[in-house]
Amino acid sequence: MITSIRGQNLLSLDELTRDAIVEVLDTAEAFVEVNRRTIKKVPALRGRVVASIFFEESTRTRLSFETAAKRLSADVLSLAVASSSMKKGESLRDTIGTVDALGIDAVVMRHRSSGAALQVSRYVPHVRVINGGDGLHQHPTQGLLDAFTIRQCLAERRGVVGTETGAELFAGLRVLIVGDIRHSRVARSDIAAYVALGAAVRVAAPATLLPEFVEQWPVEVVTDFDEAIEWADVVALLRLQRERGSGSFVPTLGEFTTTYGLSVGRARRLRPEAIIMHPGPMNRGVEIDSLVADSPAAVIGRQVENGVPVRMAVLYLSIAGADEERAS
């Protein structure tokens, strides 16, 4: 287990301890303040080079990582894979080797294959690798920013300072994750973060959209969304990932929406203080009703907003947080 991501790669939240996660959340709190300034830039990573390589399409993750790196004053090398030599058949190893030859300190990468980030970390052991999503495996910064958003909401309500609460606000918190668990790396990272922080997690999905070996996960599986809805303090919806073939795992989209969509009717049955989350991009009218997505209980905009400070914290700790041994 990794007890702090200082000077470390961030490949999966499964390997982080509670302390390591809390350290990222606390550091991100300071970057929220930086993002409120008129001049939203600090020189913490001046002269460092961060490569951003997305082998899979992305809007928010890529934009927010690159914004984060730039607000830390790092130089950003951005590789557009669609127009790169990968198209001529260059291997992952050779592509990374080429980028590494330019002299980089860290690489943020997304890839359609699970384990791709781990593989790259073996090719370039002297470069910090930040996983921006690998296949069905993990999306660690999404898990961290979701945990950060929950702590921020709860701290505001109770009138306390987030950094002074550590993981306390998660003790016994009831989180319900609904929808396409099987194809979701977000769900895997969210579950790892919430469980490490002390929350109780249930997942609700049709049997076809549950992963294999879900019984070994630290969660309780429910097949009836309606049964669990009044239990939850937090409801996290997931996107039905049609590009990964989710469409063929449900009889029709309409039926999925009827049984597992967060409709206005279901949202009314939520606890009054419940939080509604969605990692985006949303299929409005499929997993979440458009009116619910825009309701005050939904913190979806805040999740996107928190992406920058949380990714700043990850880059800062991973790159500037090297231990003395490595630095000397």
Binding site: R6, A44, Y316, A320
Partner: peptide, 22 residues
Amino acid sequence: LDVAFYRDDLARNPAPIPATTR
């Protein structure tokens, strides 16, 4: 004011967890 991000020894010392700037 927390000056952690502005230090010239960030590369030599473990990055401190920044405290509140207000």
